[in-house]
Design a binder for these strands. Structure first.
Length: 568
RNA sequence: UGGGAGGUCGUUCAACGGUAGGACAUCGCGCUCUGGACGCGAUUAUUGGGGUUCGAAUCCCUACCUCCCAGCCA
């Protein structure tokens, strides 16, 4: 490697966003006794998506780079929406992305401590038990432009609140009968500070604590305390929590001694041509618009994994898009670039024909089979070569032949010579059609002198085609995916419509009898390949012995398709 | 019409009072046994208006635009 002036390679070319800048300053200043501790705090109420990957890469990444720690913490304060299925998938997804948490916690681990903190607040006169109904509380809250009004129960003696709160915990009251509220300021212009709810009565079975509790803390109260109890130093979250920060600080300032966690907000990731809210993703799953959370069209981590994305490509993507406070919509082409870039370097090349057109080599001996050496990966010499059977009857891609070739179409046409990849030059001599006039077969001659794909006389061809030997080919299923929605912003809908109306009806195309070279016979789920000239493909979990199923991860960049589109 | 936040190429991130740069996208060209990859080149931006300064994307004022907040969700 060429020497550089930079003597601190760890810092070399690492993107420094505003959060890393703040953290570095804090570290330099010796804040938090020089510690750095972050956490990734998902609620287990859905599967993780690419937007979460941004947060994961940020939280785990910054800890990794700067010698800190990062915990995985499940924010499980609402038992009515949460489930172990989700916690398992979240753990699997974080691990798959390549991150290891220093510790794993649940907010529910802290329920007792959080409860005790609440009693403290009550004793200090900072919280009270209210008996307004939900509707009344809403009415008392005021509006964006008008202040709220104090609840008639706001000045209830602390002793009375304490008694009521303990009886709430003991299960003496029905759901919704009482609620614990912070006593802050009903006149605050920040609605979050108008005596926010701290605890509600909710008789629901919790996926971890079972029926131990019938009262559950609210996010705004439990989150800062969970952070503090874990000694988190930097609590990174998305922009919509900016207005909650005063409440976050209120909780910490009133209850925590010593180092105080600091909340910093950044802009969440948005991608065009998809939706990213868990609510909407859940709707797609529940209404059957997709096959499940891991449908390869979903922007979920599990969907991307099944689609064939690599963890590295997702991490590189997250590094490239950066972290800032500005709302953003990333072009999905950026994501596609990341996976092409990664797979180009590592995916072994194979040949498969999606839309087969039979080619008979008329001057090739019947019954003869030879094995040609084919390059496994031109980007990686160490990948070597493999043997692929060649015979008199082959399949080529239907799109690679035109009876009447347009300008700039370099592929096969009557009388034209092209190369079959790593095999021979062939020349089309005859076009066979059925009664409907459809081309059903091509008759070609080959030049035996061009074995391996080079002409000894130096003559050139303008195209190289992929192919498979007809009698040796594997019959495989291939699933081609297109964007799930046909508009860049599916949420941009006219009155009375929903994002569902923008679903792309052609987002999945199944090809049931694609022809693949025999070396693929031993492929296993999640194996990734480049089908030469077509794209990157990943073996799907639906694969059965003898019945391979491939997902197209992403097509190759297709210059000819662009030229052709312009000619129309 | 309260409060909070944000406006830099088409998109995204940088530049932190001193030559507005990278990535993706787009368009050319070259190279190529993948019309892939790769290489080279090009286009395009500081929301408007004032001010401070030798010098402003950066500091100040002002206008405009966008996003978030009225769950006993997170």
């Amino acid at each position: 490697m060429a020497p550089t002036d930079d003597t601190t390679p760890a810092a070399a070319s690492a993107p420094v966003d505003f959060i890393r800048t703040i953290i570095d300053e804090d570290l330099r200043a010796g804040k938090n006794h020089g510690r750095l501790a972050t956490r990734f705090p998902p609620e287990p109420n859905g599967y993780l998506h690419i937007g979460h990957a941004k947060s994961i890469c940020l939280n785990f990444g910054v800890a990794e780079e700067r010698g800190g720690t990062c915990n995985l913490r499940f924010d499980d304060t609402n038992p009515t929406k949460e489930d172990v299925e989700y916690v398992e998938s979240i753990k699997a997804d974080v691990a798959w992305l390549g991150f290891r948490w220093d510790a794993m916690f649940y907010a529910s681990d802290y329920f007792e401590q959080i409860y005790q903190f609440a009693e403290q607040l009550i004793r200090k006169g900072k919280a009270y038990v209210d008996e307004l109904t939900a509707d009344e509380i809403r009415a008392y809250r005021g509006t964006l432009t008008e202040p709220g009004r104090n609840s008639p129960w706001r000045d209830r003696p602390a002793e009375e609140s304490l008694d009521l709160f303990r009886r709430m915990r003991a299960g003496e009251f029905e759901d919704g009968k009482y609620i614990l509220r912070a006593r802050i300021d009903m006149g605050s212009p920040n609605l979050n500070m108008r005596d926010p709810a701290l605890y509600r009565i909710r008789r629901a079975h919790h996926h971890r604590t079972g029926d131990t509790w019938c009262i559950y803390p609210m996010y705004d109260y439990a989150h800062p305390l969970s952070d503090a109890l874990e000694r988190i130093t930097h609590s990174l979250c998305t922009l919509e929590f900016e207005d909650h920060r005063p409440l976050y600080d209120w909780c910490v300032d009133n209850l925590i001694e010593g180092d105080k966690p600091q909340q910093i907000e950044f802009a969440r990731l948005n991608l065009n041509y998809t939706v990213m809210s868990k609510r909407k993703l859940l709707q797609l799953v529940q209404q059957g618009h997709v096959a499940g959370w891991d449908d390869p069209r979903m922007p979920t981590i599990s969907g991307l994994r099944r689609r064939g994305y690599t963890p590295e490509s997702i991490r590189n993507f997250c590094a490239r898009i950066g972290v800032a406070k500005k709302e953003n919509v990333i072009d999905v082409a950026q994501l596609e670039h990341s996976i092409r870039e990664d797979l180009n370097k590592r995916a072994p090349r194979v040949m498969a024909v999606l839309s087969p057109l039979k080619v008979v080599i008329t001057n090739y001996p019947e019954g003869r089979v030879e094995e040609v050496d084919v390059i496994n990966n031109p980007e990686d010499a160490s990948a070597g070569t493999r043997k692929v059977p060649f015979s008199r009857e082959l399949y080529i891609e239907r799109d690679d032949f035109r009876e009447d070739p347009p300008k700039k179409f370099f592929r096969l046409a009557p009388g034209r010579e092209v190369r079959l990849r790593c095999a021979y030059f062939i020349t089309c001599t005859e076009v066979v059609k059925n009664a409907d006039g459809e081309v059903i077969e091509l008759r070609c001659t080959y030049d035996p002198a061009t074995r391996g794909g080079d002409a000894p006389d130096g003559r050139k061809v303008k195209a190289t085609l992929h192919w498979v030997s007809a009698s040796h080919a594997l019959d495989v299923q291939v699933r081609l995916y297109d964007r799930l929605f046909n508009v860049p912003d599916p949420d941009d809908v006219p009155e009375g419509r929903t994002f569902i109306d923008h679903l792309n009806p052609e987002s999945l195309q199944v090809i049931t009898h694609a022809k693949a070279e025999p070396s693929l016979a031993s492929a296993k789920p999640l194996d990734r390949f480049q089908f030469e000239r077509l794209g990157y493909f990943c073996v799907d979990a639906d694969t059965q012995p003898g019945a391979l199923v491939f997902n197209r991860t992403v097509s190759l960049r297709d210059t000819w398709a662009k030229i052709e589109a312009k000619q129309d």
